[in-house]
């Protein structure tokens, strides 16, 4: 039996270790752990990517991520939610984001993880700036990210 959902949010410049975060999701009553790890691609929207700089609104970021995790916990029976999001200058292959969810059964863990990522993409105040071989530019938001919310 799972008690109240444990929520752990961290935002900062330091890297995280997905394996370590996954271990934290194990607890009594948990039969399923799902996770998503976002990584910096080496291709920009055009030319080769040198780095990606993530800016955020620190006071709002943590509270928004917590709200999203709480919405997921209201909707599915979850043991724990972990969200780690990095900011600052990141290089190709660096970790950007980790979302992990645990539950008694796989569907709740999978769905809650996807729900959190979809909402994070549209409601958490982060912005990415690409540094490429041809200069820098702010990445535009994708309409498909807004569309993704409709399924929830």
């Amino acid at each position: 039996m799972i008690a109240a959902c444990k929520i752990d949010i961290s935002v900062g410049e330091d890297d995280f270790d997905s394996a370590v975060e996954l271990e934290k999701l194990r607890s009594a009553g948990v039969g399923a752990i799902a996770s998503f790890t976002g990584i910096v691609r080496d291709e920009a929207t055009g030319p080769a990517l040198i780095a990606l700089t993530l800016e955020h609104y620190p006071e709002m970021t943590t509270s928004q991520l917590r709200k999203i995790a709480e919405q997921a916990a209201d909707r599915w029976q979850l043991g724990a939610v972990i969200i780690c999001h990095r900011v600052g200058r990141l290089l190709p292959e660096d970790n950007i984001v980790f979302v992990g969810t645990s539950s008694a059964h796989r569907k709740a863990a999978f769905d809650a993880c996807a729900f959190i990522m979809d909402y994070l993409k549209t409601e958490a105040p982060f912005w990415k700036k690409e540094e490429t071989t041809q200069g820098t530019r702010w990445i535009d938001a994708r309409i498909s990210d807004d569309e993704a919310l409709k399924k929830w």
């Binding site: 105040p125 702010w138 938001a141």
Partner: peptide
């Protein structure tokens, strides 16, 4: 009050 463009995290 904060002003910002559509978010692009994740």
């Amino acid at each position: 009050v904060a002003f910002f463009p559509p978010v692009t995290g994740g």
